[in-house]
Amino acid sequence: MYAVNFLILAAVLFSIGVFGVIARRNAVMVLMSIELILNSVNLNLIAFAMMNNSPEGHVFALYVIAVAAAEVGVGLAMVLMIYRNRRSIALDELSVMKG
């Protein structure tokens, strides 16, 4: 099995996730795209762990999974709060940070 297989798959998933982050209007969808990005990174980590036959890559992947879980929890809570306050989670209507 070639290393590039995993790496290219991860790269493609990453790019698709990036596209989702840029293109999606719904905040929940953006969070999903971020999950795609994180998973592609995990794939990379596992591939490299396999390449070096060492457990460190696995451990890092587990860290990423844990952080991703935390991120989703907080992210969705924020989305809920935004929804409660504004009755909408469309990101392009949120421009409080406009300079």
Partner: peptide, 8 residues
């Protein structure tokens, strides 16, 4: 890849 494209 197909699934990911559908997601976004």
């Amino acid at each position: 890849v197909f699934g990911a494209l559908r997601v976004v």
